[in-house]
Amino acid sequence: MTTPLKEDRIPRIAVMTVASIGVAIMLFILYSLVRDSIPILAHVTLSDLLLKTHWYPTYDPPEFGMLSLLAGSLSVTFLASLLSLPISLALAVFLSEVCPATLREFLKPVIEILGFFPSVVLGFLGMVIIAPWMVMNFDIITGLNLLNASVLMGIMIIPIVTSLAEDSLNSVPKDIRDASFALGATRIETVVRSVIPAALPGLMTASLLGVMRAIGETMVVLMAAGGSAMIPRSIMDPVRPLTSAIAAEMGETPFRSDHYYALFFAGLLLLLLTLALNMTALWIENRGKRWRS
């Protein structure tokens, strides 16, 4: 662009300074989580923290085994992804390949708005609809469990994955479809053999970002997952994911106690998991771009 005039340096530096607040926040998030989770390692070894299943932070002596919390997070995320990713991808294919244009103009905003549905309301639905229904239909005492939370979390990530996946299907050039049709392929053959392979990096990114959102989701699991810290043996078992342990316990924890540090450690674990997923998604995105050009 034009060479900036000399008098223009001050605004540039000012804008740059304000912009750097974003970097500062991210660094401070990393810093405060690391700083406040390191002290727990003085009392509990890393392997005990990660590999023991007994989470009794308020007992005397307390036990800080996070494996059951981690198992809770991973099991809900896995089941939610299993339920919702196929639906989301099918919905994305529908919107981009099958849907008539007028209906699409209506459906896309509806799905986007669904993405803003407050998670506390979904958790509430788990308590007042799904849980009583499960108690009535299955032989269980409480309906707040792994399956309940996974269904709700599935509902939560459908709009996220659908919009991202639809964007990537949409960005596949029309020529690819035309070429496939010209060779006599049916619509579904075109989608499966030409469009989806071309959009694959975008579809993978969309799914990964959905999984990332699920691991970090708090209110749904806090309200609907039941909250017992154990490794689930069936989908009807209650679980206590990392997020709900933090949200439920941080309020009653004395400041700078071992329990406080342990919860920050749980937060650090969550942050690292989501960052890893986010960076993998970013890597796939960039590779996809390079591969296409």
Binding site: A19, S20, G22, V23, I25, M26, L27, F28, I29, S32, L33, R35, D36, L209, M212, I215, G216, E217, T218, T243, I246, A247, M250, L263, F264, G267, L270, L271, T274, L275, L277, N278, L282
Partner: peptide
């Protein structure tokens, strides 16, 4: 760095924002 930070912030779990708010 700025792009990476904004992208990472978008993925930080909301409860981790809570922990950060508490500590900071």
């Amino acid at each position: 760095a700025l792009r990476l930070a904004v992208r990472s912030l978008a993925g930080v779990p909301s409860v981790v924002f809570g922990l950060f708010g508490l500590a900071f």
